[in-house]
Nucleic acid binder design. Structure first.
Lengths: 200, 200, 200, 200
DNA sequence: CATGAATGAGCCTTCATTCAT
DNA sequence: TATGAATGAAGGCTCATTCAT
């Protein structure tokens, strides 16, 4: 009934479709037929390519996480100064969040823990490890403050970025390019050794 | 069969129980009987006090949000310097996130939009408005950078905080008090006017 | 909270209340608490006087049937000519249907068979037997056609009467006193030996 | 487990099954699984074809009413004398009541008002209007008494017929063909102008 | 391979009935 | 004796999954 691009491979179309509806209604709130319909195939076909709904969720998760990882890390000049790397990463993340809002939102959904399998979790850790290395590199080079554990830095930075786009998505905020640049600079600033000593 | 604390009031017990399981499995992933069981009452009893599952969710949300708001804002000395206010808020938030991890996680869940009623949403906006005012006060007093919109500052700050505790909860991080203080200082640092000018 | 007539006996009040709501919503469509509320007592009290919902239904049925029987048969001059008896019965039935529409409707409800107990059924047969005797009397006296079994006559007559008031209740008809008299005469006419021979 | 006639169409089988159990237990007294079981399908299948239980009830009602209407009215020679029309209708009604007792009983159930939708109600009124016209025709032709409103005549006649078969169904009566003919003649007689003047 | 009708376990909700107060 | 909160089986309905075509 709806064979949009007949020779596009079905699993990919199903993953893409699932991503859309998962972002809209959440994983638990999405019925399998709704995914099949969005993909323009029948339920039976979906189950030909994915054993469970859970398997599909994990496939979508890995797919999306990997796309993010690729967009962030591919051809990244790790020999550049940290600030340049930071700006590049920020720009790439922003592009991802803006060009694939569903993907970005999906990755941030809270209730993944209940159905992610070990492989998916490993993938997540992999990306984290990569970012961690970048930070450590910067710390060693003296370009990023060394008085904080890289894990803390990552959590704060990633959280701040997510917070920014989540606020925008929920309508609390209208994000302009200026906002995004300012936010980037503020975040970078917090990664520097404090020049003024502790407050108070 | 299970009258654990016979004279504790049921609605409160049900809200508390719901919070626990919602935090664990998400709202959509939680069956009503699971809530009743956690509360040690029967399903029928739950429905005596809450018309819908949705009504219960909203009650839990409001309850929790209000408790957070109260913990954050009660007896806050708004005439204190911004840094002191900031530290107080950070400490209170940390205490909340550590003492009531379920509550903290629940409030951060993504898929609330689908079932929150107007009253709940209004409550959320109310707390945001309060925090916003604090930031504006600090900006006017020259203690917080004025080159960023308060909304952006809030989003970044709240996001960073959430990111920190979410990473801890997910096991990517073992949070110590030192970590929390450092994170606080880093966040505060990003709220200051940059002393060194933009990078690059 | 609502002790309307404190010394009226409770079972009677409960039967009356049940009749009202049964007529309105049907037996299956009526929740026990609704009956208690209508009676101005608590559910617990209801169960003090009636073992089951079913027991209450049967009590209401018997109560109502007996009241009908009494209104129809008490002080009936069985020595009067059939036409006079007929007119009296018709008038009494009409009064009952008009003064106690709930009772009349309840007695005619179809799905009684599923919960009437033997005693209730016996009562029903008792009233039928009484009417049957009246008809036989008339037949013997040559005042009612003898070419039809009394059972058939009863069924037709009772059905016609019910049909008349049911149509009125359902809004297909606005019943006037003239209508009721005409209907009475038409019914009586059908009980007479045909003066013109069969059709066809 | 029970694929009795595999290629019979399911909605029809479901309507037929529902009619049977509705006639037995009443609509409110019938659980959806009981209908599915009677039809030899699963609950899920029932809900594939009918949105609600209520939708099914209405479908059954319309189906049944229309079948009755068709059996009564199709190829009816309205130019025939009233008596002939009357006899035909009576015969057709009798056939319907005897061949499809569940259908006949279902149509007469009291508590329809609570779940019939406007379309179903319209259908009911349509059939009534048709019968009404036949009566008026007969009245104009002087073959049916003109001193009674057609609505009254309809109510009495339909009620009498229903009463006859209801009595039989409830076991108060063993209906023979002779009974049915006699009843028909008696009913016709009541539709004639009284030749003897009022009784008393 | 693809389809989508069929299945039935499980979800949300109601309600007849009980029992501590 | 009266109350009404508590219970849990059962009802209406959904949806992940299967399988005949």
């Amino acid at each position: 009934m709806t064979p949009p691009r007949p020779n596009e491979d079905k699993p990919a179309r199903l993953r893409a479709a699932a991503l859309v509806v998962f972002a809209r209604t959440g994983v638990h709130g999405t019925a399998v037929p709704a995914i099949a319909e969005q993909a323009g195939v029948s339920v039976g076909t979906l189950y030909r390519y994915f054993e469970h709904k859970e398997a599909l969720v994990n496939a979508v998760f890995r797919d999306t996480k990997q796309r993010l990882a690729h967009r962030l890390m591919s051809e990244l000049d790790v020999s550049a100064p940290s600030r340049a790397i930071f700006d590049t990463l920020w720009a790439r993340l922003s592009a991802f969040a803006q060009e694939e809002p569903d993907a970005f939102q999906f990755l941030e959904m809270q209730d993944h823990d209940s159905y992610l399998d070990p492989q998916s979790r490993a993938l997540e850790l992999g990306l984290l490890a990569q970012v961690r290395q970048l930070i450590q590199l910067g710390q060693t080079a003296g370009l990023i403050r060394s008085d904080m554990r890289p894990e803390i830095i990552m959590a704060l930075f990633w959280g701040a970025f997510v917070g920014l786009f989540k606020a925008a998505r929920r309508g609390y905020l209208q994000l302009t390019d200026t906002d995004i640049s300012q936010a980037r600079d503020a975040c970078w600033q917090s990664l520097q050794t404090d020049q003024r000593g502790p407050g108070k």
